[in-house]
Amino acid sequence: MSLNPVALEELVRRVLLEDVGPGDVATSAVVPEDVRCTAQIVAAAPGILCGHPVARAVFRALDPSVEYTPLVPEGSEVDAGAPVASLSGPARPILTAERAALGLLQKMSGIATATRRLADGIKYYHARLVAGWETLPGLRLLEQYAVRVGGGQVQPYGLAGGVLIRSGHLALAGGVREAVVAARKSAPPLSRVAVEVASLEQVQEALDAGADILVLTGMDPETVKRAVEQASGKAVLEACGTADPSHLIEIAKTGVDIISVCDLAHSAKSIPFRLSIEGAKAQEKEA
């Protein structure tokens, strides 16, 4: 499991451009340029650690000589007070990158923690846990990575990655059948066509039109179960769930193939981390 290095580099550049801008006034004023330090990133609450590659990239973007060493593997469960990474190098870039690096680490660890909790709850059922389409442009790369680290799966990265016919498409196309047929004609040959359906009548329309994936929206568990029986394996069925583990179990019991949690990425509570400076000294100058 890895992050696209080109996309990560661009994301980090934009994050630092926003957070640091023309410079870190406080650090430049207080910390001499020749001071080096060692530090640790410490978890302030229990959770699933996610984001080592991102935190490393943030620190090293400001100074490639900064050494970032993970102390626990990516995806590990950590306790409050546990050191998760060590840092050494010039003090200024370490302090300047602190807020951005820890902020991303906190957000990604929160998503991974929430995902692991939900995925573990349905691991003995047929259904797969998938993060919904509601990830944020600009942070989608990190949000989807964190979901995978937590044990979930993700939707296509962007609108070009798959065909999802939503309710707005249905209203403008004239119905389920019309929208699916139109998508089949225009989409790339190997594309799978997914369509949102809100009733058992629309389920049948979608099946008759040859849709590959039926996204069951606004249905209670009993209706989802009936939709599963109606489809009888002719299409992949995806039901929308919430971040409530008990609700996910009820949905999983219906026999549906996929459970998507729309707010999984953006509603997860961040896991706090702090930077602990351990030692500092001025760099010895050459004679």
Rank of each mutant, 00 (worst) to 15 (best):
C262F: 05
L141K: 12
D220E: 15
H126R: 15
M219P: 06
D79T: 15
I249Q: 11
A265W: 01
A209N: 10
I122L: 05
S232C: 11
A265D: 10
Y124M: 08
I48W: 01
V163A: 10
T242Q: 03
V84Y: 04
S88N: 11
V42M: 04
A227R: 13
A252E: 07
P90G: 13
H126V: 02
L142Y: 05
A112H: 05
P188H: 10
E9K: 13
L3C: 04
M1Q: 09
G75N: 12
E178K: 15
D212M: 03
K285V: 08
G75V: 09
V78Y: 02
P53M: 06
G279D: 08
Q155A: 10
E205R: 00
G174P: 09
G152M: 10
R177N: 01
M108C: 09
A146D: 07
E238G: 07
E10H: 09
V35S: 14
L17R: 14
S246P: 00
S28C: 04
V58T: 15
A97F: 06
E67F: 04
I258H: 04
L8I: 04
L17Q: 14
L207E: 10
K285L: 12
R56L: 01
I258N: 02
R177A: 07
V12M: 03
D79C: 08
A55W: 00
L264W: 01
D257V: 09
G151K: 05
L142Q: 13
V261E: 07
L17P: 00
L264C: 09
H247G: 00
R226S: 04
L16N: 13
L214S: 13
Y157W: 10
A194R: 03
E77Y: 05
G23W: 02
R177K: 12
A43N: 07
R117L: 09
A91V: 01
V195G: 08
R128T: 12
L102G: 05
V72A: 11
A206R: 09
T223R: 14
L136C: 03
A287C: 08
A183H: 13
D212L: 03
E222C: 05
D120H: 11
S276H: 11
E98D: 12
E229G: 11
G241E: 13
G121F: 01
E134C: 10
V15W: 14
P93M: 08
L102T: 03
V203I: 07
E18C: 00
V20F: 02
E222V: 15
E229C: 01
A131V: 13
L200W: 02
P272N: 06
T223H: 03
V181L: 14
Y145R: 13
G132M: 11
D212T: 06
T69A: 06
G51S: 09
R192G: 10
V30Y: 12
D257A: 09
D220K: 14
L129A: 12
T96D: 12
H169C: 06
G218M: 07
Q204T: 14
P90T: 09
L248D: 05
H169T: 04
E229Q: 14
H247A: 13
V20R: 11
P156M: 05
P83E: 06
P156W: 04
